[in-house]
Amino acid sequence: MKFLQLFGGLRSVVIGMVHLKALPGAPGCVLPVAQILEEACKEAEIYRKAGIDGLMVENMNDIPYTLHVGPEVTASMAAVCAAVRQTCPHLPLGVQVLACANQQALAVALAADLDFIRAEGFVFSHVADEGLVSACAGDLLRYRKAIGAEHIQIFADIKKKHSSHAVTADVSVSETAKAAEFFLADGVILTGVATGQEADPRELKEVQRSVRIPVLIGSGVTLDNVEKYTDANALIIGSYFKHHGDWRNNVDYDKVETFMDKIDQLRN
């Protein structure tokens, strides 16, 4: 119900990614926060004009990622997300703080008046390229309760990309989704094995049969393959919307507009 209220009952909601330039403390940081903020707002405005359904802000350029995110990242992202909210006051907005900084993401979302976060490592421990990731659902939902942020939805990755799942190889993707639903996730996210890689359409059907919460696709959607994923509640798209399909590049207005035109046709 919360998902439907947020997105107005749209089918195949399209969420565009705003990838921030490297933030203070990251090895690649070369810009002041004010300029990072300005570029993020410009990108958000391009998406808005092209007809996007929602946006999510992410510190994608903070490579290599760490599981020990400093307060400078949380503070910078809160400032940037608040500015993006002012730029797009009526769009559903979310945030992801890499890597696996889910409590920080909730704090940012609360401070910046955002609507949702994307959470990694919600259920079941696994080995990510950043290191060992432990399940966080119990602590995360208690933190959300404690800070009065229960209106902020948590969309949880299952079988997270850029990770080994050998430890949980005996736990299927549908069982993982069921566990996330049981642990009160507001939605689950399916991805390919890496950024920009397609999710398995068969897994989409499998998970949808297993849970009653929204199922989102979190990587690999393009104009050419979108019809495989129109049953999903939402499509989170970053790489494809950038020039030359590279997440490091700027948003391509024409690609976003063309994609949204096709989505409108498929919805009708």
Rank of each mutant, 00 (worst) to 15 (best):
S239Q: 00
R248A: 09
A78H: 08
Y240C: 06
R202G: 09
K228F: 06
N61S: 14
M60L: 14
N225K: 12
S219Y: 02
P201W: 08
A185L: 08
D246V: 06
A166I: 14
E58G: 00
S164M: 07
K262S: 02
T87F: 06
R209S: 13
V14A: 11
D231F: 10
L132W: 12
H165G: 11
V173M: 02
K255Q: 04
C100V: 01
R142N: 14
A179T: 09
A34E: 15
P27K: 01
G54L: 08
S172L: 10
I36Y: 14
T74G: 11
V33N: 08
N102L: 03
L20N: 06
F116E: 05
H244P: 01
H19S: 05
L184F: 13
Q208H: 11
V215W: 00
V251N: 03
A111S: 14
I263W: 06
E257N: 04
P201Q: 05
F124M: 14
L55V: 07
A112Y: 15
V33P: 07
Q153C: 02
A99G: 10
Y253D: 01
T222W: 03
F3G: 01
V123R: 10
G238E: 04
V256Y: 12
G192L: 00
A112K: 13
Q265H: 15
V84T: 00
M260R: 11
T195R: 04
K42L: 10
V251T: 09
V18Y: 09
A199Y: 01
E45C: 01
V226L: 15
F183N: 13
G8A: 12
R267T: 04
Q208S: 11
L223W: 07
R202Q: 13
V80L: 04
Q104G: 09
T66I: 12
H165N: 09
G187Y: 03
V171T: 11
Q86G: 11
G138N: 06
C81Y: 02
E130K: 01
A50D: 05
D231P: 15
L106R: 11
K145Q: 10
G16P: 09
E58M: 03
